[in-house]
């Protein structure tokens, strides 16, 4: 088991290094960093001086090492469009994205488990069929269409919820939160639902399949034979055993939720990292793109590693079975 963890950790470092190389290559070769700093009529001698002061005349491996060291210290250079350090920009917007991603995950897990348990227990009921249809639509409909539909229903037609932004936020140290104000909470509802819908359908299908399987197991028959109430059998014995894979999937999917927040944040003009990234792609702001890539890679790798290690502690049988969907 110790060897397994070491191997996984080495793999994680390998992934991070690979992403680091890509990110460095983007930063260094896609667009000349010097041109982004000097103006059009800067004389060649001065350009050369800027080039040297940035260390761009060093051998490429030296530059790469320096880039990695700086990235590890949280220094990703200066954004071309905002003229501010990328790390400051990302730090400012990280709370918005994390709050959105966490709320979406809670929504997806809560409703996904409820719907999954129900359609697992009463698989032929009309409501269970309705849930199946919803899950097919949830997988087929592009995220942004769901967002537009919600905005049209709840903002334009009914006027209940705001269609963009975070509402009022409260500052707690460096963290800004929308969870403590009414307008902030109202603004969170639609983006969380939009972002969480896909994960909800995923969890629902998983819980349904697991429930169907567990209910056939011998220990459930034994629990029934002992005369336990249906309720105790279903929730104390069956549900508990379906939750291990659910927790795993929720964990593994959290990285995807943060990445998919790019789309949701654009639809709802949510001031998070995803919106920053889309604006960076539109305006070819390479430092932000490279830094975002590194950050997302770090989040993915840390989550994957944590889940892997938790597996070996909780249930060694699961070690190799669950794969993340594309």
């Amino acid at each position: 088991m110790f060897a397994f963890i070491i191997r996984r950790a080495l793999q994680a470092i390998g992934v991070l290094l690979a992403v680091g190389i890509i990110s460095f290559a983007m930063f260094r070769f896609a667009g000349d960093p010097v041109n982004q700093i000097v103006s059009l009529d800067t004389p060649a001698a001065e350009r050369e001086q800027v080039r040297r002061s940035l260390g761009l005349d060093d051998p490429v491996p030296v530059q790469f090492a320096r880039y990695l060291v700086q990235a590890a210290q949280g220094n990703f250079g200066i954004s071309y469009q905002f003229r501010q350090p990328v790390s400051t920009l990302l730090a400012e917007r990280m709370p918005a994205t994390l709050e959105l991603a966490i709320c979406a995950t809670i929504f997806a897990t809560g409703f996904g488990v409820l719907m999954g348990v129900y359609s697992g227990l009463k698989r032929d009921s009309a409501l269970a069929k309705l849930f199946q249809t919803i899950s097919l639509i949830g997988i087929s409909l592009p995220t942004f269409l769901i967002g537009i539909l919600l905005i049209y229903l709840f903002s334009v037609t009914l006027g209940w919820l705001p269609s963009f932004g975070r509402g009022d936020t409260v500052r707690l140290g460096w963290w800004t939160t929308g969870l403590l104000t009414l307008s902030g909470l109202k603004a969170l509802i639609m983006p969380s639902v939009t972002l969480g819908l896909f994960q909800m359908t995923l969890i629902m299908r998983l819980v349904r399949a697991e429930m169907l399987e567990v209910l056939r197991a011998d220990y459930i028959k034994f629990a029934r034979a002992r005369g336990l109430t249906t309720r105790a059998v279903h929730f104390r014995h069956a549900l508990k055993n379906t939750l291990v894979p659910v927790i795993t999937v929720v964990g593994l999917q959290f990285g995807s939720v943060i990445a998919f927040a790019i789309i949701t944040e654009t639809v709802f003009q949510w001031p998070g990292m995803g919106l920053l990234f889309v604006q960076a792609v539109q305006n070819v702001d390479i430092p932000i793109m490279a830094a975002y890539l590194m950050l997302v890679a770090l989040i993915f790798v840390v989550i994957n590693l944590a889940v892997d290690i938790l597996y070996t502690i909780v249930d060694p049988r699961l070690r190799t079975t669950i794969r993340q969907p594309a």
Partner: peptide
């Protein structure tokens, strides 16, 4: 297969966005 593994870690939409952004910046 290692390249495939690394790529599978990330959602396709993120990779498409990145490639799109980088190619556009190279073409200018």
């Amino acid at each position: 297969m290692r390249i495939a593994d690394v790529q599978l870690t990330f959602p396709a939409i993120l990779i498409a966005l990145l490639v799109d952004g980088v190619v556009k910046s190279v073409l200018g």
